[in-house]
């Protein structure tokens, strides 16, 4: 399959992007929690055309034993793209890029997890990209932190992530695949909202200092919006059961 052609314009006359979004608009996001039975915690995210599954195991006995630390739990993370997640078949073997993303995802989540509560153990985190559409590291972080929370692992906060980029000279939120490829810059950010801590900040392309500052502001706002969706998704699982059983009871009382 040939590489998708470069679109003529990334922004049209009305100031809308190729998928019809405004420059400061996120792609539609769907979040689900606890969709895998066998994992201790899991989450699924759809952000635009991204489809990502995150699963968490642990804390469990550290294996191999020599990776265990005496004072805290170790977190291992694997970011992996399925062979069918991109236009051309991707080799399932871990690539340089996947290893880098595994590392940055781990490092963006490590500061919020209370690892000191579980010395000598290990927490495994799997981020599986089923379909990729740009910004998958951010969507991966968003899903992975939800999966950690779903596993009941004590953590300070849920981490939200979002990217900002520059296309045709203008700052744009949450780049899609084409915008990422043919745009001028990409700036992924992960935010711990309550403590205003940034746990991921990367950039490729170039931005002026003032653009960077404005872009960072846009990303932080977007992360906060995503964070409230995460919270909702996390509680929804429990609210659904609660509503069903408590409603049934109420209707029985009336009858």
């Amino acid at each position: 399959m040939p590489e998708p052609k470069q679109p003529e314009k990334l922004i049209d006359e009305k100031g809308l992007r190729i998928d019809g979004r405004r420059l400061d608009q996120l792609r539609p996001i769907k979040l689900e929690v606890g969709i895998l039975d066998k994992a201790d915690g899991s989450a699924y995210i759809e952000q635009g055309k991204n489809k990502i599954l995150a699963a968490v195991y642990g804390p469990r006995e550290a294996h191999p034993k020599h990776i265990a630390l005496p004072e805290r739990a170790v977190i291992r993370c694997r970011y992996h793209m399925a062979p069918f997640s991109v236009d051309e078949r991707k080799s399932p073997a871990p690539s340089r890029r996947e290893m880098e993303l595994s590392k940055v995802i781990r490092e963006s989540l490590e500061p919020v997890v209370l690892t000191e509560l579980y010395p000598r153990t290990m927490i495994d985190l799997f981020v599986e990209i089923l379909q990729s559409d740009g910004g998958s590291r951010c969507a991966g972080i968003t899903a992975a932190s939800l999966a950690l929370a779903d596993a009941g692992i004590p953590m300070r906060e849920i981490v939200a992530a979002c990217a900002v980029g520059k296309i045709e000279g203008k700052l744009a939120l949450d780049l899609s695949d084409a915008e990422d490829k043919y745009g001028e810059a990409d700036l992924p950010v992960a935010l711990v909202p309550n403590s205003s801590m940034i746990t991921l900040l990367q950039m490729d392309g170039s931005l002026t200092p003032s653009e960077f500052e404005r872009g960072l502001g846009m990303a932080v706002e977007a992360c906060k919006a995503i964070h409230s969706m995460q919270r909702e998704a996390l509680k929804k699982k429990y609210h659904e059961i609660k509503e069903v059983v408590e409603e049934k009871e109420e209707s029985e009382v009336i009858a």
């Binding site: 929370a149 953590m155 906060e157 849920i158 509680k235 609660k242």
Partner: peptide, 8 residues
């Protein structure tokens, strides 16, 4: 009520 991590 159900609370999430990081909730005040």
């Amino acid at each position: 009520h159900v609370v999430a991590p990081g909730e005040l």
